[in-house]
Design a binder for these strands. Structure first.
Lengths: 209, 209
DNA sequence: AAGTAATTTAATCATTTGATTAAATCCATT
DNA sequence: AATGGATTTAATCAAATGATTAAATTACTT
């Protein structure tokens, strides 16, 4: 499909269908196999296009990866940081919202956390530049509420706990499925249960002495 | 250093120093960068030997990887499965022992969990063949005790919780270090705190209604 | 329908990388 | 110190892979 704009000689506003198709294919393959194990030919095949077209649109594997990575980080952190900083919700409600939103998000993108964690480890500086986590957490509503509730324990310990309880089951999912401790359906049901259970558990942890 | 045995024409009992040196280098590089991103030349350099020597000892990158992977899985699961199946300890003690042993182990090998989880995802069948997790958990002491304590909740939910609280902080460590939420020393101290806190938290979770 | 720019492709290039080989070096035994 | 097997290396090969190019095709405008 040719572009429908000939007056715009400078433009970059592509007809999105092909470009998006490539990006989605790239997201699928990168997220499943990681950067190094992904061949651009795999992405092209997944997108149903030719290898050269991928470079025509994205210049290089690295540039394509950066775009996908950017959006993945945005997806994974964009959903939680607003909840963490929201000063209008009480602590217990925050935890319910975070658990529910996070489990829903990751259920739809089960490979996302392991991929993002791996790639952040490979390039922490890049992550730091994209997500100013220190600034966001500093004096965030959640951290303040945790300090107030349990001044004796570092507030990030509880943030770690909430994230751990939400994310770790998905990160370790291949283990439970391979070992047939759960099948796909049981796993999904267990994660659904956790949306209700995690807030109960975290409240109990906040009280525990 | 030449071998000190000339009568043994069939042998494989290498003088271990070089072979072990290569394997340790491989463990370091594989664990840090993953299989695909690791070049055999990197391993050779890390080991202070030539590339050909690596193939002389291990035949191929894949074979070397399998050995390292085997030992890594052994390390990560070998320490916890005996505790899970030990019928002589009470539930609360089990949790203390697991948390303490696991955090100690991972503190010494902080890249291990992310590496093993990634590679299990890449090849779940191989993992299944190496660790018969279903057989081990089935009627294991820990699972039985969890069923008895909380018949209303799937026992693996609590196993997930213990592992999540122990492992996830290390898996996400690059995030906290990059964002300067913790420096290395503070992170280590926080993990040390968790050896005491996790059993308290898990007991609270087991009571929570 | 012709012209034109956008899109797509097949073929090819250059580099990287896992692996091999033949020769050199080392070292215990004689 | 000469011998011979064990160990190590430099050089090279072959396949995989990211990227480029020039030509072919498509579809919109006139």
């Amino acid at each position: 499909m040719a572009k429908a704009r000939k007056q715009q000689e400078e433009e970059l506003t592509e007809d999105l269908s092909t470009e998006e198709k490539i990006k989605e294919a790239a997201r699928t393959v990168f997220t499943k196999k990681g950067y190094a194990a992904t061949r651009t030919r795999d992405i092209a095949e997944e997108a149903g296009i030719n290898l050269a077209l991928l470079n025509y649109y994205f210049r290089s594997k690295e540039k394509l990866f950066q775009q996908v990575m950017s959006e993945n980080i945005q997806k994974l952190f964009g959903i939680i940081l607003p909840l963490v900083t929201d000063a209008t919700t009480k602590l217990d409600v925050k935890i319910e919202l975070i658990a529910s939103a996070y489990i829903d998000l990751i259920r739809q993108n089960p490979d996302l956390p392991l991929f993002v964690l791996s790639e952040i480890r490979n390039n922490p500086v890049q992550f730091k530049n994209r997500v100013p986590l220190d600034k966001i957490l500093e004096n965030s509503s959640l951290i303040e509420q945790l300090k107030e509730r349990r001044p004796d324990i570092h507030p990030v310990q509880f943030l770690l706990n909430v994230l751990a309880l939400c994310v770790f089951p998905f990160v370790s999912r291949p283990i439970w499925l391979a070992a047939k401790v759960f099948d796909e359906k049981e796993f999904a049901a267990a994660m659904e249960d956790r949306k209700r259970l995690i807030p109960v558990w975290v409240k109990a942890m906040l009280k525990a002495k």
